[in-house]
């Protein structure tokens, strides 16, 4: 989709094996400048390892990485000036205030916004003299992102930026990402929230077991399901597979928990057919629900598992 030269981030054949797990197992990515790119996958899919290799914090066992057209080895000093990041979990100095932390991080960079500007941008100005240890989870996370923005980076890496945050804090962080992008910034983020990926990202790579299993815009990925709706139902006892396969307008079905999940075009046709099949089979309907197809369904259809099945 992008050639190497115009890529903000590019990697090919990326591999990182740990003794017990293949964290990244041959990953190719090309992220354009100005793009917001999401790595979506369940816990343990290799998202953090991947993003940390791209951030130059972990060395890959194999593969090439280029960031802003440069390799990490030999260009680390230059690249560190031009990227910003928030690690999945960093506990900043608890005894320092928000302002002190930002001043400290600001001192590392040649240029960038002032701590005052950043605090205003991230709605931290009321907390400027509060100790980091006293901040809420959302405020800490915003401070963490502020530390990523303090050098006025070209690329912002965010590893699970909203995990564990309340809905309002998530919205605030999404705003920050949107504002960064509006100024031409490139964003690479990992998440296991499909709504976050769907809302923020231009393109999404779905990864599982360190491999890329799907890549595209959220709309493309959902379209790849070839169905706009998903029906989930459970019966007592389980409905035989032959009955499920015969239900009209469907584009596939999988076992899902105690029951079945079907991707269908038309709820109006499929749902009555499901109920009829259940009656015919002599089983008893326990639950039935429907929803519009989402990225979660893309993941389930690709892997047979849910994104958050932990």
């Amino acid at each position: 989709m992008n050639d190497v030269a115009s890529s903000a981030i590019f990697c090919r054949g990326l591999k990182k094996y740990y003794p017990d797990v293949k964290a990244v197992d041959g990953l190719d990515l090309s992220i354009a400048r100005g793009e917001c790119f999401g790595l979506l996958g369940p816990n343990g899919a290799g998202k953090t390892t991947t993003i940390e290799i791209l951030e130059g914090l972990i060395t890959a066992d194999a593969g090439e990485v280029e960031v802003l057209g440069m390799r990490w080895e030999g260009h680390e000093a230059e690249l560190r000036e031009r990227i910003g990041l928030a690690l999945q979990e960093t506990q900043l100095n608890e005894k320092l205030t928000v302002l002190e932390v930002l001043r400290l991080f600001r001192s590392f960079y040649r240029a960038g916004p002032s701590p005052a500007e950043l605090m205003k941008q991230l709605s931290l100005d009321e907390k400027m003299n509060s100790r980091v240890g006293k901040l809420s989870g959302g405020q800490k996370q915003r401070l963490s992102v502020a530390c990523g923005l303090v050098g006025d980076p070209d690329i912002l890496f965010l590893d699970e930026p909203t995990t564990g945050l309340d809905p309002q804090s998530r919205l605030q962080l999404w705003d920050v990402v949107a504002r960064f992008r509006s100024k031409g910034g490139t964003v690479l983020l990992t998440t296991h929230y499909m709504d976050e990926a769907q809302r923020l990202c231009d393109r999404i790579a779905i990864v599982d077991h360190g491999r890329l299993i799907a890549l595209g815009t959220p709309a493309e990925l959902i379209a790849s399901l070839q169905a706009s709706n998903v029906v989930e139902f459970t019966t007592q006892p389980l409905l035989a597979e032959a009955f499920v396969g015969a239900i009209p307008t469907q584009h596939g079905f999988i076992r899902h928990g105690e029951g079945w999940q079907l991707r269908v075009d038309s709820l109006a046709v499929s749902v009555p057919a499901i109920i009829a099949s259940i009656e015919k089979s002599g089983t008893r309907l326990v639950t039935l629900s429907t929803h519009e197809a989402t990225l979660e369904d893309v993941f389930v259809s690709l892997t047979g598992r849910e994104l958050r099945d932990e």
Binding site: L57, A77, R80, L85, T90, L92, F108, R110, C147
Partner: peptide, 11 residues
């Protein structure tokens, strides 16, 4: 606390 890691991710 991964603060060292965060610091070396800066210049």
């Amino acid at each position: 606390r991964k603060l060292l890691k965060r610091l070396i991710a800066t210049p």
